[in-house]
Design a binder for these strands. Structure first.
Lengths: 261, 261
DNA sequence: TCAAAAGTGTTATTCTTACACCCATGA
DNA sequence: TCATGGGTGTAAGAATAACACTTTTGA
């Protein structure tokens, strides 16, 4: 992220012991987890991100990433899963740590108390299957305004805190994940057509990432897809073969510099 | 990092408000920064990592990554730079955030206090130029044992905490950084020979990453190296041309899926 | 004049790209 | 019988990998 030439370091008068040596100068932290939860609506070719509407200050009324503070005895990853499970029910998902945003002044609550607590956000990146992602606070809850919903990446509103930056960072990660790893299969149904896969890729990576026929040839040559023999008809047109991802065939390719694009 | 199918989420009885709703169940955190500082000794073809010997418990006497606790008003990145500058003086360096390790039970100090403070480590990855990296606690300091030194990646001792894991994670990052980005030039002298560059790559990536002649052809074809016209003679043999990295020529290639291998 | 270090060239093979074209089905 | 969605083929050019080879220097 950062690259410097000839930096001028701050002079350290007393490096001292890192543990409780000068406890008054240490920052006090509250650690939260924020999730960038992506999904792909392949029917409408939209890349979606899940946002929640804040009820409290700061940023009451703003949309933000679903997050939580980490509890005693809870790992960061567990906190990420918990937040996710509080907002959405899914069968398949992929989750990994994204980045840690912890500079001072990223949360207005810090400035309210002099020498106040620092809010550190460990962000997680998730990809869920849109078809079976069930929002726990549904859109139709009487007259109260919608508190959780999917936003298309094209129409993300102003977000609370530095969450817009986190979303952008997440999108970059999503693109490279698709290119270098088989995440897509975590999020597709068990069996899928090559067109389903292609739609997923082109929705995330943009229209001009590859020609369908070349994409098809490359994927089949990799040998990581089993043809189930079954076919599916969707509207008019020739029925499509249903494939299944073969983890055993993929295993030896793991960590190899293979491209799905 | 994690991929699950049909996970069973913990039941959340009262999700509540994330802010200070049930303050007693929130974990209290001390946030530290640990640096994985790599360097390459091209003369001896060794990939090196900087370790410090701990004086206090826990893990007194063990080698560990140089780290520090984050101070008031200090960003995570600033803390990483500070730690680095306390141990080593360098002219050129590359630094970026690596990963955040924050599960409970990663630090024995947690268990000593019931419901104790959690130790969270935001790790940073750095690459410095070996030739002008000057250790601040030099090897020859009387009879006291050496407190900071470079270790070859092949002979890393048992490390404190989960630092071995962090080092391994850092090494993976180093390899992909070399392959996909021009970090190498941050750490080479201003002018260098193609062999210098090749040595750096093969030391980090292993002997069989590429043939010298093919490496050479690819790098020159990229057009990001300026031939300075100067030559340098090293021992017997034909003098080598000195090249300089051209950031302007590289700029348009940024974010392109280019490979240096 | 030889070995070391640097640099060039060659060739077979594979990959990529941009297409054109054929097949099976419902309306 | 035609539009639609699915699937196959191909040919030019680029990239890759494994080499052999030449050039320039110090000893």
């Amino acid at each position: 992220m950062t690259s410097i030439h000839s930096p001028s370091y701050p002079t350290v008068v007393n490096p001292g012991s890192p543990i409780a040596d000068r406890p008054t100068v240490l920052a006090e932290f509250v650690v939260g987890v924020d999730n960038v939860i992506f999904s792909v609506d392949t029917l409408e070719n939209r890349l979606l991100v899940l946002l929640v509407n804040r009820r409290q200050d700061p940023f009451a009324g703003y949309w933000s990433l679903p997050g939580t503070l980490v509890r005693q005895g809870e790992s960061l990853e567990a906190a990420a899963y918990r937040t996710l499970s509080e907002k959405i029910r899914v069968k398949n998902l992929y989750l990994e740590q994204l980045y840690t945003f912890g500079g001072p002044d990223r949360d207005p609550r810090e400035s309210s108390t002099a020498y106040g607590t620092r809010y550190l956000s460990v962000s997680y990146f998730a990809l869920v299957r849109y078809e079976d992602a069930e929002l726990i606070c549904p859109p139709e809850s009487g007259t109260t305004p919608q508190r959780i919903r999917w936003f298309s990446m094209e129409q993300i509103p102003d977000l609370a805190f530095d969450h817009r930056r986190i979303v952008q960072y997440g999108q970059r990660r999503l693109c490279s994940k698709l290119e270098y790893s088989p995440v897509a299969f975590e999020v597709l149904p068990d069996t899928f057509t090559l067109n389903d896969l292609y739609q997923l890729y082109s929705t995330v990576l943009g229209e001009n990432f590859s020609d369908y026929s070349n994409f098809r040839a490359r994927l089949l040559k990799l040998g990581i897809l089993q043809d189930t023999g079954e076919k599916i008809t969707r509207g008019a047109g020739r029925p499509a073969s249903l494939y299944r991802f073969d983890p055993d065939a993929f295993a030896p390719l793991k960590d190899k510099p293979l491209l799905f694009v």
